[in-house]
Design a protein around this nucleic acid. Structure first.
Length: 1171
RNA sequence: GGGCGAUUAACUCAGCGGCUAGAGUACCUCGUUUACACCGAGGGAGUCGGGGGUUCGAAUCCCUCAUCGCCCACCA
């Protein structure tokens, strides 16, 4: 390979070449059989729907930095890439395309057909995402690329569902969900966005029905209608006629009980039983009827004047489904009416007036709220609360209310005799009609304009409907508790720390997770059930046979089933539903068992058509990608993963769920259970498992993988040179995490990138920047550097966006990255060309070349000055017998090496706490500010001097080597390319104890730099000389001296500075473009010279005769100095300061004052002489 | 309503009890010295959002107000 560096840096050729080499040599491939402490990251899988944006770019750049750094640290490093199938988003996109291109709906092409199309689509776009990640430079193990819908993930999904189902943590329930009437699926809260909509607030009169004789008759009629209404629902929703006992129980167990309502669960269970009776046709009376007698007893004392209540609503059409009006129990305007009825306009039903202090805010509106349980989340909660409770201790009257669905899945009003007029109308039409009819009846009190937030589906952009339907849920409480605990205890840490709050707050709510989606694209729910009840209930004998069979299969681990038996205290047969409508069977794996298949067929059991929420598979990502539930070597080696890097928006949706499922599937208890299963014992419940002795998995030796201590030995032996810093995780911590099954130890949150106005980037706003455009125009390294520098601890990072000449979005922000990359390239080119020259010369003079390295001793610096050694392991130095003879080093050599080690130290500390910006800044400041601006400039003469060039070149090569290692994770392409050239030109590098340079053909696999010793003396002296040089340059500039023109300088300085200046005279003269005439302590003032003073050293530059300018400058300086004196004096005259501040600080102030006063005196003297 | 963050130079951001508050970009001056004009040398530019407080000392800690943004809840 030709490793010449082109004179102009061309990112595209550099990048493609380096990446091709890494791939060809499998540099990113991880092998679990190899030694080394594991370091694992799983990518947050991008949605297959979209191309990558800057958010992905920053997220993946940071992951790559960590991955590359740990690989260089000798860890057994794995970064797993992959893509999310993004259920609803993807299906929506493909359906839209289908509609646009072929004018077909999903029903036209069928389930199979649609899925086939989506897979084709996935191939195309999934590959594009992989390509984009590769262009970014991501060092993922591409052989292990996963897709949340591939076989490996599917297996994990299936097993997890089965486990949850078996443990009773998955249940089917009727719930109010967010219904997308366009896509006809439920969607989760996070797929909703709110839009402000201008509408009206309609005030409607609901006539109060007095307790007179007509009442009983009215109520009876209403009851009759209710019966009809039941059949209407049944017709409309075939599967929803059972407000099943199971769902009601589940609701009671899992929903948050309202505050202070401890008895709710018990009461709901009772009510559920009642409902079951009703469903089974054993209950004769409608619950409402039980209230009639009590009603007539009500006194109407308060009510004589009031004949109606006014409710305000933005959704008048839902009044068809009203089943109550609610008031606050302490609202004197209305509480007298509690227990009475109102006559619902338009349909004429009688509905109760109930008290609900949670729903009703008496200070808001009229204090009266209509209750539509089937179409409003709050009202649904009211329905749940009012399951037959007495109004108060003194009243025996129950306030149970009904629930009535009025909408079809398409969002039309359902067919129903009571509102036939509106049947089939869409929401808006129905609303219009209802309002008109109310007007006609004189029941519309007023209509006022109103703005409200309406939830819209993110996918179809249509308004969502709260809709009552049967869904599958995961019970959160048992899963959430351990997941909360590991974060509270700091076993999982967030960076920055504050994000733990978001996590804890959300998880603390323990709201059950609706996991079913009425889609086709996704993991299908592995539950078989009858869509309807059996026409004829099974005879007891047959039912008993069914149960026996099921128990047999369950015992052999093939399936799990749920029915009423899951309620404690009821035997399975007792509870078994003879209509089989409440029997849910979860098959662990798809089966070909003819007996089971025949059973399913005989009883008409079908697989649930729904699929799982896409987050269900994402939640398993850290262990499913490693092969779980199979006990793969990968799983054993790489789980738990080390860190998760992600954006803060999915801390709840994703991070929390990964912790829950990770601990549930991978925690020790779970693993034990697994082990027992393999032994042929069926574990019935998790509860019993804790008494079992630890499985072999955790007792030391493991199949195929040696124990922890053996691995550690291996790692040590494999080190050629000291490996650097130990991983921040101790063995104990790692083991604890493994036992608990946590998916990762750290969660690092990267900032969200916004545009210059602080708005989120998006396609619709047109402010998005495409990372590939930036790579094309600036290069991937430049993009990466800029993004790394933006990765601060704040939550957002702004990036002003502008259009480039071709109309694409770009940002000047990337200039900084590009400039730095360019600087890096050119500095390396310069260094390499010198090294090449010197090396070839050296080779031609072997073997005596070494002697050249001797250079005159300048300021020998005793080693004792160095701070504590950072390399605790002495072995490595033995590898290189050549001792470091620093007496040969020039000041710049010692300084730059020390500064380099300082930088490595800073970088290590920064990356340990995920301060990527500090990493970028440290590298930038060191490389540009110290190395290029000072060191390289300072050594130019030495590189030309045969006596010194050998030594200088050796330091230069070692520093370059270290810099390339240090910056490689952030700037991988340039550094790798330069590395190859450096290996060619100068294969032998390294300053033992200072900069270790163990050889490596590829930088990507080279060792991360160790922190070598510092040189405090040089770090003290060099900056003083810098200040002197800057001061001289400053005077030159002020006097408009041409940069090329050499000036003559005389310096007045004490003996020590004089010594340093003299010793480094050549460097000062070069960097300040001057000739130093003399340096001494007793230098008399020089007339007609421009002067300055810095670090106790007075500078005189001859021949700069601009007296006026000089006088002005002196005046200004003396003014400033006087001011400084004043400030310092004031500080010292403050007694409290002298008394309370640290003595060190007070002394410092005194010294400063003395210096400033002396300087001021000199300035005044000079000014006096000038007149 | 609850929580979190931001407010520092024209712009984008560091700094988070103690050096004269820093960097990059932009701006101004000078400069085509063979690494780099995507460069070099230098410069100007800030009441650290307002107001209180704690402290010897506050950009930094506390309270409060204002503005902007995000998350959660709610909006009959």
């Amino acid at each position: 390979m030709n490793t010449e560096l082109s004179s102009k840096y061309d990112p595209s050729s550099v990048e493609s070449q380096a990446y091709a080499v890494w791939l060809a040599e499998k540099c990113f491939h991880a092998d679990p059989a190899k030694p080394g402490e594991p370091y694992t990251i799983v990518i947050p899988p991008p949605n297959v729907t979209g191309a990558l944006h800057l958010g992905h770019a920053i997220n993946n750049t940071l992951q790559d930095i960590l991955t590359r750094m740990h690989r260089m640290r000798g860890c057994n490093t794995l970064w797993i890439p992959g893509i999310d199938h993004a259920g609803i988003a993807t299906q929506a996109v493909v359906e839209k395309q289908l509609k646009e291109k072929e004018n077909k709906t999903r029903h036209d092409v069928g389930r199979e057909g649609l899925i086939e199309r989506i897979w084709a689509w996935k191939e195309q776009y999934g590959n594009r995402i992989i390509e984009q990640l590769q262009r970014l430079g991501c060092s993922c193990d591409w052989d292990r690329t996963r897709f949340t819908l591939d076989d490996m993930c599917a297996k994990a999904v299936r097993e997890t569902f089965f486990k949850l189902f078996k443990d009773g943590l998955i249940y089917r329930g009727k719930r109010l969900v967010n219904w997308d009437t366009f896509l006809q699926t439920s969607i989760s809260d996070d797929e909703i966005y709110h839009e402000t909509v201008k509408t009206n607030l309609w005030h409607i009169r609901y006539p109060i029905v007095d307790g007179d004789r007509d009442l009983a008759a009215e109520t009876a009629k209403s009851a009759e209608k209710n019966t009809k209404e039941k059949s209407a629902i049944t017709k409309d929703q075939p599967e929803s006629n059972q407000v099943s006992a199971l769902s009601a129980i589940s609701a009671a167990n899992s929903s948050r009980p309202p505050k202070g309502d401890e008895d709710l669960a018990a009461e709901t269970t009772e009510s559920a039983e009642k409902n079951t009776e009703a469903n089974l046709g054993t209950a004769k009376d409608h619950p409402d009827l039980n209230n009639v007698s009590a009603l007539s007893a009500i006194s109407a004392a308060n009510s004589s004047a009031t004949t109606y209540m006014v409710v305000a609503t933005t959704r008048p059409e839902t009044m068809l489904g009203d089943t109550a009006v609610a008031v606050h129990s302490e609202d004197p305007r209305w509480n007298w009416a509690i227990g009475k009825f109102v006559k619902l306009p338009l349909t004429g039903r009688l509905i109760p007036i109930i008290a609900d202090d949670i729903l009703v805010d008496p200070k808001f509106g009229t204090g009266v709220v209509k209750v539509t349980p089937a179409h409003d989340p709050n009202d649904y909660a009211v329905w749940q609360r009012h399951q037959g409770k007495p109004h108060s201790a003194s009243s025996r009257q129950a306030d149970q209310i009904e629930i009535i669905n009025i909408l079809t899945p398409e969002g039309r009003i359902v067919e129903d005799a009571r509102w036939q007029k509106y049947a089939g109308m869409k929401r808006d039409a129905a609303r219009k009609q209802v309002v008109e009819d109310l007007k006609a009846e004189g029941l519309l009190e007023k209509e006022e304009p109103y703005e409200t937030q309406v939830g819209h589906s993110d996918r179809s952009k249509t308004p969502i409907e709260p809709y009552l339907s049967d869904q599958w849920f995961v019970k959160m409480a048992p899963l959430a508790e351990p997941a909360l605990e590991v974060v509270r205890e700091g076993i999982i840490k967030f960076f920055p720390e504050r994000y733990a709050q978001t996590y804890l707050a959300w998880l603390g709510e323990k709201r059950d997770w609706p996991i079913s989606r009425q889609l086709w694209w996704g993991h299908r729910i592995p539950v078989w059930r009858r869509p309807k009840r059996l026409e004829q209930p099974l005879p007891t004998i047959e039912l008993s046979h069914v149960m026996t069979k099921l128990n047999q299969w369950r015992a052999s681990g093939l399936l799990a089933y749920q029915l009423l038996s899951d309620v404690e205290g009821i035997s399975p047969l007792e509870a078994a539903d003879p209509n089989l409508a409440l029997l849910y069977i979860c098959l662990r794996e798809d089966t070909h068992d003819p007996e089971i298949l025949a059973f399913f067929q005989k009883y008409g059991l079908e697989q649930d058509p729904d699929v799982l929420d896409t987050w269900f598979s994402s939640a398993l990502w850290p262990h499913s990608t490693l092969g779980w539930p199979e006990q793969t070597p990968e799983l054993k080696k790489y789980y738990p993963t080390s860190v998760l890097l992600t954006g803060r928006d999915i801390i709840t949706l994703w991070v929390a769920r990964m912790v829950m499922t990770g601990m549930y599937n991978m925690g020790e208890r779970s693993q034990e259970e697994e082990a027992r299963r393999h032994e042929g014992t069926e574990a019935r419940s998790v509860k019993g498992a804790s008494s079992i002795s630890p499985s072999p998995l955790y007792s030391g030796e493991r199949d195929g993988v040696r124990g922890q201590s053996a691995q550690a030995d291996d790692a040590r032996n494999s080190k050629a040179v000291p490996s650097p810093q130990p991983s921040p995780l101790s063995t104990g911590e790692r083991e604890r995490g493994r036992r608990l099954g946590i998916p990762f130890f750290h969660v690092a949150i990267n900032p969200t990138i916004l545009d210059g106005k602080g708005e989120r980037m998006s396609k619709s706003k047109g402010n998005g920047v495409d990372p590939v455009d930036i790579i094309d125009s600036y290069g991937a390294d430049a993009l990466r550097f800029t993004l790394t520098k933006m990765a601060t601890e704040t939550q957002d990072a702004r990036m002003p966006v502008k259009k480039d000449s071709t109309g694409k979005n770009t940002s000047d922000k990337f200039d900084e990255g590009r400039n730095f990359c360019n600087k890096l390239w050119n500095a390396c080119r310069f260094a390499l060309s010198n090294l090449e020259e010197i090396s070839s010369e050296r080779r031609s003079q072997e073997p005596g070349a070494r002697s050249q390295d001797a250079s005159p001793t300048l300021n020998p610096e005793p080693r004792t000055l160095n701070p504590e050694p950072t390399n605790l392991n002495p072995e490595p130095r033995a590898l290189n017998p050549e001792p470091v003879d620093e007496s040969k080093w020039s000041l710049p050599d010692r300084w730059i090496v020390s500064r380099f080690n300082r930088t490595v130290d800073e970088v290590n500390k920064a990356l340990e706490i995920y301060r990527f910006d500090v990493y970028a800044k440290s590298c930038y400041d060191f490389f540009w500010g110290d190395f290029c601006d000072w060191y390289v400039e300072a050594i130019k003469p030495a590189l030309k001097d045969p006596a010194r060039r050998g030594q200088t070149a050796h330091v230069l090569a070692s520093v370059i080597d270290g810099c390339l290692r240090l910056m490689h994770p952030m700037i991988p392409f340039i550094t790798e390319t330069v590395w190859w050239r450096l290996n060619d030109v100068r294969p032998q590098r390294g300053l033992p104890g200072r900069i270790e340079c163990p050889p490596s053909q590829r930088l990507v696999l080279a060792q991360w730099p160790a922190v070598g010793d510092f040189s405090q003396a040089s770090e003290h002296i060099f900056p003083k000389l810098q200040a002197l040089i800057v001061a001289i340059r400053n005077i030159r500039n002020e006097h408009q001296v041409n940069p090329k023109q050499t000036v003559t300088v005389s310096l007045k300085a004490d003996s020590e500075p004089t010594r340093q200046i003299t010793a480094n005279r050549e460097m000062i003269e070069l960097l300040a473009t001057c000739t130093i005439k003399e340096v001494r302590a007793d230098l008399p003032p020089i007339a007609n010279a421009a002067t300055a003073s810095v670090e106790g050293c007075e500078i005189f530059i001859e021949g700069l005769v601009n007296a006026d300018a000089e006088k002005q400058r002196l005046l200004k300086e003396s003014e400033e100095t006087a001011k400084e004196c004043e400030t310092l004096k004031a500080r010292l005259s403050n007694e409290a300061y002298v008394a309370k501040a640290p003595p060190r600080l007070v002394q410092q102030t005194r010294d400063q004052l003395a210096t400033a006063e002396a300087r001021l005196e000199k300035l005044k003297e000079t000014l006096r002489k000038l007149g």
